[in-house]
Simulated scan of single mutants.
Amino acid sequence: MDLEIKPDQLKVLPHHQYVTTDGISPSTVAPSPIDQFRIWFKEAVEGGVVKEPEAVALSTATPDGIPSARMVLFKKLDPRGFVFFTNYTSRKSEEMLANPHASLVFYWKEVHRSVRVIGQVEKVSREESEEYFKTRPYGSQIGAWASKQSTVVQEGELQGRVGELEEKFGADVPTPEFWGGWRVVPTEVEFWIGKPSRLHDRVRYLRVETTRDDQPQWKIERLAP
Protein backbone atom coordinates (compact mmCIF):
# COMPACT_ATOMS: atom_id res chain seq x y z
CA MET A 1 0.00 0.00 0.00
CA ASP A 2 1.30 3.47 -0.92
CA LEU A 3 0.45 6.61 1.04
CA GLU A 4 0.58 10.30 0.37
CA ILE A 5 1.25 12.05 3.68
CA LYS A 6 0.93 15.79 4.19
CA PRO A 7 0.90 17.79 7.46
CA ASP A 8 -2.90 17.97 7.49
CA GLN A 9 -3.84 14.94 5.42
CA LEU A 10 -3.21 11.26 4.73
CA LYS A 11 -4.28 9.75 1.43
CA VAL A 12 -4.30 6.08 0.35
CA LEU A 13 -3.13 5.82 -3.26
CA PRO A 14 -4.39 3.26 -5.81
CA HIS A 15 -2.93 -0.13 -5.04
CA HIS A 16 -3.55 -3.87 -5.26
CA GLN A 17 -6.17 -5.13 -7.70
CA TYR A 18 -8.02 -8.31 -6.81
CA VAL A 19 -7.03 -11.34 -8.87
CA THR A 20 -9.47 -14.20 -8.30
CA THR A 21 -10.32 -17.18 -10.43
CA ASP A 22 -13.55 -18.14 -8.68
CA GLY A 23 -16.90 -16.41 -9.00
CA ILE A 24 -20.52 -16.63 -7.93
CA SER A 25 -23.90 -15.99 -9.50
CA PRO A 26 -27.52 -16.59 -8.50
CA SER A 27 -27.41 -19.84 -10.48
CA THR A 28 -24.36 -21.27 -8.67
CA VAL A 29 -25.07 -20.51 -5.00
CA ALA A 30 -27.02 -22.70 -2.58
CA PRO A 31 -30.80 -22.07 -2.23
CA SER A 32 -30.30 -20.88 1.36
CA PRO A 33 -27.78 -18.29 2.63
CA ILE A 34 -27.26 -20.46 5.72
CA ASP A 35 -26.12 -23.33 3.51
CA GLN A 36 -23.98 -21.03 1.33
CA PHE A 37 -22.30 -19.53 4.39
CA ARG A 38 -21.57 -23.00 5.73
CA ILE A 39 -19.80 -23.85 2.46
CA TRP A 40 -17.72 -20.65 2.45
CA PHE A 41 -16.82 -20.79 6.14
CA LYS A 42 -15.71 -24.41 5.84
CA GLU A 43 -13.49 -23.44 2.89
CA ALA A 44 -12.07 -20.47 4.82
CA VAL A 45 -11.17 -22.70 7.78
CA GLU A 46 -9.89 -25.73 5.87
CA GLY A 47 -7.93 -23.67 3.34
CA GLY A 48 -5.56 -22.65 6.11
CA VAL A 49 -4.79 -19.17 4.77
CA VAL A 50 -7.51 -17.09 6.45
CA LYS A 51 -6.00 -15.96 9.75
CA GLU A 52 -9.16 -15.58 11.86
CA PRO A 53 -12.26 -16.50 9.85
CA GLU A 54 -14.55 -16.21 12.89
CA ALA A 55 -13.76 -12.51 13.40
CA VAL A 56 -16.75 -10.42 12.36
CA ALA A 57 -17.74 -6.76 12.53
CA LEU A 58 -21.01 -6.27 14.40
CA SER A 59 -22.97 -3.07 13.86
CA THR A 60 -25.82 -1.96 16.10
CA ALA A 61 -27.74 1.28 16.50
CA THR A 62 -29.66 3.20 19.14
CA PRO A 63 -33.41 3.74 18.67
CA ASP A 64 -32.44 7.20 17.33
CA GLY A 65 -30.33 5.59 14.61
CA ILE A 66 -26.86 6.39 15.98
CA PRO A 67 -24.68 3.47 14.84
CA SER A 68 -21.70 1.79 16.46
CA ALA A 69 -19.51 -1.08 15.30
CA ARG A 70 -16.97 -3.41 16.85
CA MET A 71 -15.32 -6.77 16.22
CA VAL A 72 -16.72 -9.89 17.87
CA LEU A 73 -16.16 -13.62 17.41
CA PHE A 74 -18.76 -15.66 15.54
CA LYS A 75 -19.29 -18.91 17.42
CA LYS A 76 -22.19 -20.86 15.95
CA LEU A 77 -24.41 -21.19 12.88
CA ASP A 78 -27.78 -22.86 13.31
CA PRO A 79 -30.89 -23.02 11.10
CA ARG A 80 -32.09 -19.67 12.46
CA GLY A 81 -28.90 -17.65 12.14
CA PHE A 82 -25.52 -16.47 13.39
CA VAL A 83 -24.60 -16.67 17.09
CA PHE A 84 -22.02 -14.80 19.19
CA PHE A 85 -21.63 -14.33 22.95
CA THR A 86 -21.11 -11.23 25.06
CA ASN A 87 -21.97 -9.35 28.23
CA TYR A 88 -25.68 -8.46 28.30
CA THR A 89 -24.91 -5.11 29.97
CA SER A 90 -22.44 -4.01 27.29
CA ARG A 91 -23.13 -1.15 24.88
CA LYS A 92 -23.87 -3.53 22.01
CA SER A 93 -26.33 -5.53 24.10
CA GLU A 94 -28.08 -2.42 25.38
CA GLU A 95 -28.47 -1.17 21.82
CA MET A 96 -29.82 -4.52 20.62
CA LEU A 97 -32.28 -4.65 23.51
CA ALA A 98 -33.56 -1.19 22.57
CA ASN A 99 -33.36 -1.67 18.79
CA PRO A 100 -33.43 -5.39 17.91
CA HIS A 101 -31.66 -5.15 14.56
CA ALA A 102 -28.00 -5.64 13.67
CA SER A 103 -25.62 -6.33 10.83
CA LEU A 104 -22.52 -8.51 10.52
CA VAL A 105 -19.62 -8.26 8.07
CA PHE A 106 -17.09 -11.06 7.61
CA TYR A 107 -14.04 -10.07 5.55
CA TRP A 108 -11.61 -12.79 4.53
CA LYS A 109 -8.88 -10.73 2.92
CA GLU A 110 -6.66 -13.69 2.11
CA VAL A 111 -9.27 -15.26 -0.24
CA HIS A 112 -10.91 -11.98 -1.37
CA ARG A 113 -14.31 -12.89 0.04
CA SER A 114 -16.80 -11.12 2.26
CA VAL A 115 -20.23 -11.90 3.70
CA ARG A 116 -22.67 -9.23 4.88
CA VAL A 117 -25.66 -10.12 7.07
CA ILE A 118 -28.61 -7.93 8.09
CA GLY A 119 -31.29 -9.19 10.42
CA GLN A 120 -33.22 -9.13 13.63
CA VAL A 121 -31.59 -10.18 16.88
CA GLU A 122 -32.71 -12.43 19.69
CA LYS A 123 -31.09 -13.90 22.79
CA VAL A 124 -30.20 -17.57 22.61
CA SER A 125 -31.56 -19.90 25.28
CA ARG A 126 -29.95 -19.98 28.71
CA GLU A 127 -29.03 -23.61 28.09
CA GLU A 128 -27.10 -22.68 24.93
CA SER A 129 -25.22 -19.93 26.76
CA GLU A 130 -24.27 -22.21 29.64
CA GLU A 131 -23.21 -24.98 27.27
CA TYR A 132 -20.85 -22.64 25.43
CA PHE A 133 -19.53 -20.97 28.61
CA LYS A 134 -18.30 -24.34 29.88
CA THR A 135 -16.08 -24.68 26.79
CA ARG A 136 -14.30 -21.35 27.35
CA PRO A 137 -10.77 -21.31 28.80
CA TYR A 138 -10.63 -20.67 32.54
CA GLY A 139 -9.19 -17.18 32.05
CA SER A 140 -12.04 -16.23 29.74
CA GLN A 141 -14.59 -17.53 32.23
CA ILE A 142 -13.09 -15.42 35.00
CA GLY A 143 -12.79 -12.48 32.61
CA ALA A 144 -16.51 -12.59 31.84
CA TRP A 145 -17.19 -12.03 35.55
CA ALA A 146 -14.40 -9.51 36.09
CA SER A 147 -15.16 -7.12 33.22
CA LYS A 148 -18.10 -4.76 33.59
CA GLN A 149 -17.98 -4.37 29.85
CA SER A 150 -18.09 -0.88 28.33
CA THR A 151 -17.80 0.88 31.72
CA VAL A 152 -14.92 3.10 32.81
CA VAL A 153 -12.31 1.36 35.01
CA GLN A 154 -9.30 2.58 36.96
CA GLU A 155 -5.76 1.30 36.43
CA GLY A 156 -5.31 -2.05 38.16
CA GLU A 157 -9.02 -2.38 39.00
CA LEU A 158 -9.65 -5.22 36.54
CA GLN A 159 -6.66 -7.24 37.70
CA GLY A 160 -7.84 -6.87 41.28
CA ARG A 161 -11.24 -8.28 40.42
CA VAL A 162 -9.65 -11.22 38.62
CA GLY A 163 -7.72 -12.20 41.74
CA GLU A 164 -10.80 -11.93 43.94
CA LEU A 165 -12.90 -14.01 41.57
CA GLU A 166 -10.27 -16.73 41.20
CA GLU A 167 -10.27 -17.07 44.98
CA LYS A 168 -14.07 -17.03 45.15
CA PHE A 169 -14.83 -19.58 42.42
CA GLY A 170 -11.76 -21.79 42.34
CA ALA A 171 -11.81 -24.11 39.31
CA ASP A 172 -15.61 -24.21 38.88
CA VAL A 173 -16.77 -20.91 37.39
CA PRO A 174 -20.56 -20.58 36.89
CA THR A 175 -22.10 -18.80 33.91
CA PRO A 176 -22.89 -15.18 34.84
CA GLU A 177 -26.54 -14.20 34.64
CA PHE A 178 -25.47 -11.05 32.78
CA TRP A 179 -23.65 -12.95 30.04
CA GLY A 180 -24.88 -15.00 27.10
CA GLY A 181 -25.49 -15.39 23.41
CA TRP A 182 -27.17 -13.32 20.72
CA ARG A 183 -28.44 -14.66 17.42
CA VAL A 184 -28.74 -12.55 14.27
CA VAL A 185 -31.69 -13.97 12.31
CA PRO A 186 -31.03 -12.87 8.73
CA THR A 187 -33.44 -11.08 6.45
CA GLU A 188 -30.69 -10.19 3.94
CA VAL A 189 -27.34 -11.84 3.23
CA GLU A 190 -24.80 -10.80 0.60
CA PHE A 191 -21.85 -12.84 -0.67
CA TRP A 192 -19.00 -10.89 -2.28
CA ILE A 193 -15.91 -11.89 -4.24
CA GLY A 194 -13.30 -9.28 -5.15
CA LYS A 195 -12.59 -9.03 -8.89
CA PRO A 196 -10.21 -6.96 -11.05
CA SER A 197 -11.10 -3.33 -11.82
CA ARG A 198 -13.51 -3.35 -8.84
CA LEU A 199 -16.05 -5.31 -10.91
CA HIS A 200 -16.79 -7.55 -7.96
CA ASP A 201 -19.23 -10.46 -7.89
CA ARG A 202 -22.11 -9.73 -5.51
CA VAL A 203 -25.02 -12.08 -4.85
CA ARG A 204 -27.76 -11.10 -2.42
CA TYR A 205 -30.38 -13.22 -0.66
CA LEU A 206 -33.55 -11.39 0.42
CA ARG A 207 -35.95 -13.24 2.64
CA VAL A 208 -39.49 -13.48 1.29
CA GLU A 209 -41.53 -11.73 4.00
CA THR A 210 -44.53 -14.04 3.81
CA THR A 211 -42.53 -17.20 4.60
CA ARG A 212 -42.38 -18.88 7.99
CA ASP A 213 -39.51 -18.35 10.45
CA ASP A 214 -38.74 -22.07 10.51
CA GLN A 215 -38.94 -22.42 6.70
CA PRO A 216 -37.75 -19.14 5.15
CA GLN A 217 -37.67 -18.75 1.38
CA TRP A 218 -35.19 -16.51 -0.39
CA LYS A 219 -35.06 -14.29 -3.46
CA ILE A 220 -31.57 -14.48 -4.96
CA GLU A 221 -30.23 -11.61 -7.09
CA ARG A 222 -26.97 -10.35 -8.58
CA LEU A 223 -26.00 -6.83 -7.51
CA ALA A 224 -23.91 -4.36 -9.47
CA PRO A 225 -20.45 -3.86 -7.94
Score class of each variant (00 low, 15 high):
residue 3 L to K: 09
residue 151 T to F: 13
residue 176 P to W: 06
residue 13 L to W: 00
residue 52 E to I: 03
residue 137 P to A: 12
residue 10 L to D: 07
residue 141 Q to F: 13
residue 31 P to M: 08
residue 190 E to W: 03
residue 191 F to R: 01
residue 158 L to E: 05
residue 212 R to A: 15
residue 135 T to Y: 12
residue 7 P to L: 00
residue 175 T to R: 14
residue 115 V to W: 00
residue 91 R to A: 12
residue 23 G to I: 00
residue 59 S to H: 05
residue 197 S to D: 10
residue 175 T to H: 09
residue 137 P to C: 14
residue 21 T to K: 13
residue 27 S to P: 01
residue 154 Q to P: 13
residue 105 V to R: 02
residue 164 E to M: 09
residue 5 I to N: 13
residue 3 L to I: 06
residue 54 E to C: 07
residue 218 W to I: 04
residue 40 W to A: 01
residue 151 T to R: 14
residue 40 W to H: 02
residue 125 S to Q: 12
residue 84 F to A: 03
residue 67 P to Q: 08
residue 155 E to H: 09
residue 36 Q to T: 01
residue 110 E to P: 04
residue 131 E to C: 05
residue 177 E to N: 04
residue 26 P to D: 08
residue 39 I to S: 12
residue 110 E to A: 10
residue 216 P to I: 01
residue 134 K to D: 14
residue 26 P to Y: 10
residue 103 S to A: 15
residue 21 T to E: 14
residue 156 G to R: 04
residue 170 G to F: 12
residue 145 W to D: 03
residue 92 K to V: 03
residue 127 E to M: 02
residue 188 E to G: 05
residue 122 E to S: 14
residue 89 T to L: 10
residue 179 W to T: 04
residue 201 D to E: 09
residue 217 Q to Y: 15
residue 162 V to C: 13
residue 116 R to V: 07
residue 82 F to V: 00
residue 132 Y to E: 11
residue 40 W to F: 06
residue 218 W to F: 15
residue 134 K to A: 13
residue 75 K to D: 05
residue 165 L to C: 11
residue 113 R to D: 01
residue 73 L to T: 08
residue 156 G to V: 12
